[in-house]
Simulated scan of single mutants.
Amino acid sequence: MPSSAGSVLRWPSFDQVIDQATRWATTQQQQNPDLLAVGVFGSYGRGDAGVGSDLDLVLILESCALPIWERLRRWDTGALPLACDLLVYSREEWQTLPSWNPRLAEVLGRDARWLAGHPPHPSSSPAILRR
């Protein structure tokens, strides 16, 4: 925003970030039939984000044979108002997450807020179904 002293940067509100992330998630799901669910976690999932917070997203695909670092290239987050960290899992990885990364499964079960779609039922942790 222009001011007499120069430019002032304004951080987007929590609601603006969630609204834009929800629109992005819905568009991605419409354009990618293999995208089962998109959720936000971390500070935006918990509802305690503030100035400087990034946007943590989890995407669950029907299947994905690409290595973890290759999966991110497919998802253009440039339209989102903040820097994003993405976790991209296949259905099978998501369903078995509690067995190979129980701490992350616990965090996602507690903090995830689903913006588009519904996560598949995990095979061994009902906590991940909350929200």
Rank of each mutant, 00 (worst) to 15 (best):
G109C: 01
D19E: 14
R103K: 13
L72Y: 11
V51Q: 03
S43L: 00
Y44F: 08
D54H: 08
S53P: 04
H118L: 13
L57V: 06
W69M: 10
E93Y: 02
R103Q: 13
G50H: 12
S63A: 10
M1I: 08
G50Q: 09
R130Y: 07
G78P: 14
R73H: 15
A116R: 02
V17S: 12
V38N: 05
S99L: 07
T26I: 11
W75S: 13
A112R: 12
Q16W: 05
V8H: 00
A116H: 01
L66G: 02
W11T: 01
L35M: 08
V40L: 03
W69S: 14
T27A: 10
L9T: 03
V17D: 12
S123Y: 10
V38A: 06
W75E: 15
R10M: 00
Q30T: 06
V107Y: 09
V40A: 05
T77E: 06
S124A: 12
V40Y: 02
S3M: 07
R73E: 15
P12V: 03
P126C: 09
S63R: 10
D76E: 08
V88G: 10
I128F: 10
Y44K: 01
S53E: 06
D85I: 05
R23H: 11
F14H: 15
W114Y: 01
A116C: 03
G117I: 00
L108W: 07
L61H: 08
R113T: 01
G117V: 00
D56P: 09
I128N: 10
G42M: 00
P120E: 05
N101E: 12
H121F: 04
I128P: 14
S4V: 07
R130W: 02
P126K: 05
R10S: 01
P120K: 08
R74P: 09
I60N: 03
P67N: 07
L61P: 05
R46S: 06
L59K: 04
S124V: 11
H118I: 10
A112D: 05
S124F: 09
A112N: 13
Q20L: 08
S7Y: 03
S53I: 02
T96D: 12
G45E: 10
G6T: 04
F41Q: 08
S43N: 01
S99W: 07
D54S: 11
Q30E: 10
Y89F: 15
L129K: 02
A116K: 02
T96S: 14
G45N: 09
D54M: 08
I60R: 03
P119M: 09
L59H: 00
N32M: 13
R131E: 06
Q16K: 14
I68V: 12
R73G: 15
D19R: 14
L82Q: 01
D48L: 04
D15L: 10
M1K: 06
T96P: 03
G50C: 08
Q29A: 12
E92N: 08
R10P: 00
L59D: 00
Q16C: 14
A65L: 13
G109E: 06
A127Y: 02
L104N: 07
G6Y: 00
A83R: 15
V8P: 00
P81C: 01
R130T: 07
V88P: 14
M1H: 11
H121S: 11
R130I: 07
Q30P: 06
L82P: 05
Q95A: 02
A83H: 14
G117L: 00
L61Y: 07
D48T: 04
D34S: 13
D76R: 04
P102C: 08
D54N: 11
S7A: 03
T77S: 03
